[in-house]
């Protein structure tokens, strides 16, 4: 594998990991920390990695563990200083997209309804939340989720179901309060 491919592999896995981390923790700062920590741990245990298995899943599994460890140590969310504008968030990808894409109106509506989604996710207990995110956002199969969470497939199935019920309840409650159509 040449350097460019390897770099690409890291980039791809990093994106997946960051997305997962963000949905789990609900904020950018914790997501960053989770990803950093996960890579560091993966690097430490590189010897244990079986190259015939997908790297993404291995990294997600590490991330899942890191997150659980963090939760056990009562990891708190940090508040991000509003004074320091974050380049990516603030710039708005609408400004950076090529001409032929039209975000604007749809994007805004979508972004708003998805804030609601994250808020609802934040209220779902983490083991259920992780299962739902891995299934419905990351598109993993039950078997793959079982590998990531290190539990039997039957447990995955019930966590996913419970997670969806809880998520739906929270989301509908938020919708009623906020009045934003999904």
């Amino acid at each position: 594998m040449d350097a460019e491919t390897f770099a690409g592999l890291i980039a791809q896995a990093g994106d997946k990991a960051y997305n997962f981390a963000y949905r789990l923790s609900g904020n950018e700062q914790d997501a960053r920390d989770l990803v950093q920590e996960s890579f560091a741990r993966a690097f430490e245990h590189a010897g244990a990695y079986d190259a015939s298995r997908p790297f993404d899943s291995w990294l997600l599994r590490i991330l899942h563990n890191v997150f659980l460890d963090g939760m056990r140590r009562h990891w708190h969310s940090r508040t991000v200083s509003l004074d320091a504008p974050s380049p990516v968030e603030d710039t708005g990808w609408a400004d950076l997209l090529p001409e032929d894409e039209t975000p604007a109106h749809d994007e805004l509506a979508r972004r708003e309804s998805l804030d609601l989604l994250q808020k609802a996710l934040d209220r779902v207990p983490l083991l259920f939340k992780a299962a739902v995110v891995l299934c419905d956002i990351e598109g993993l199969s039950y078997e793959e989720i079982a590998q990531v969470a290190d539990v039997p497939v039957g447990t995955v199935r019930s966590r996913i179901h419970q997670g969806r019920l809880l998520l739906r309840r929270e989301y509908e409650a938020l919708e009623r309060r906020g009045g934003v159509a999904s």
Partner: peptide, 14 residues
């Protein structure tokens, strides 16, 4: 901030 609307070219220092 320096940018071109609709183009993926921009720079920012803060």
């Amino acid at each position: 901030k320096r940018w071109q609307p609709g183009r993926p070219f921009a720079s920012e220092a803060y």
